[in-house]
């Protein structure tokens, strides 16, 4: 028996809107630790890792570990029917073939339940090694989204370079080139507007902007995004989910042969 009650149901709505276009089907894993998902996009270039810790739920019951295969597009359709202020409860029976999403309005005057069929998904779980990243950039998530969107109107790939001068996002295309440099900025009044650059070693990596733009659909989840770079590793674009966990996107680099 599984029963997860999330007062801030909008978080789950936002998570689904962030990943449904990147991953078609995925297994949601439930354990005592929390509600999690790891999935690659169909071309195995990007990987999504989601964790919602059990402590973040108002009620969390998971009698035994359960893996539920879901079509994320269909799950997003159902969660879209929840109001932004609704409390969302996810329910499933052990060994059952469906999952129920229950939506309660804040004053309990509307209660809806949506039942969705589960599916068998053969997914490979990858071991993500703990890494010391050469550079970690923390910046406003809206700024990161803006940069990815702007650059994708010029070119298809972005070169992200971190030096002691700052972080540079560059692209080139048929019409010309673009470079955007952000410097560390901790002097702002609000911490969510800060840009913080931690650099051990200068690093420069090339990525497909199409994927970066897809990741930025998670912008409503967090005011800040963390971009972690190492020369021989996929970039990690992380959105923290308030008090509960994270949504991380890993993107393999483009490498000159």
């Amino acid at each position: 028996m599984l029963e997860l009650r999330l007062v801030q149901g909008s978080l789950l709505k936002k998570v689904m809107e962030s990943i449904k276009d990147l991953v078609n089907d995925a297994n949601f894993d439930c354990s005592a630790t929390g509600f999690s998902l790891q999935a690659m996009d169909s071309s195995h270039v990007a990987l999504v890792s989601l964790l919602l810790r059990s402590e973040g739920f108002e009620h969390y019951r998971c009698d035994r570990n359960l893996s539920m295969g879901m079509n994320l597009g269909n799950m997003a359709k159902m969660l879209k029917c929840a109001g932004n202020d609704d409390i969302v409860t996810v329910k499933a029976d052990d060994g059952g073939d469906c999952v129920t999403f229950m939506f309660e309005s804040p004053n309990q005057d509307k209660i809806a339940d949506f039942e969705m069929k589960l599916m068998d998904i053969d997914s490979e779980h990858l071991g993500i090694p703990e890494a010391e990243y050469e550079a970690i950039v923390r910046m406003p998530s809206a700024e990161f989204a803006r940069i990815c969107k702007d650059l994708s109107t010029i070119g298809d790939t972005v070169v992200i370079s971190v030096t002691k001068e700052g972080v540079k996002f560059s692209t080139r295309g048929d019409i010309g080139t673009a470079n955007i440099v952000l410097r560390q900025n901790t002097s702002v009044d609000k911490p969510e507007e800060a840009t913080i650059i931690e650099m051990e070693t200068p690093v420069s990596l090339t990525f497909a902007l199409r994927y970066m733009n897809s990741f930025t659909k998670a912008t409503p989840l967090a005011s800040q995004v963390t971009v972690s770079l190492s020369s021989e590793l996929p970039v990690v674009v992380e959105y923290k989910i308030a008090e509960m966990g994270y949504l991380r996107f890993y993107l393999a680099p483009k490498i000159e042969e």
Binding site: G127, I128, P234, A252, E256
Partner: peptide, 14 residues
């Protein structure tokens, strides 16, 4: 131009 790598090149299957 540079060639797109896959995630599985970096992370091992469990």
């Amino acid at each position: 131009g540079p060639k797109q790598c896959t995630i599985t090149k970096f992370f091992n299957k469990l």
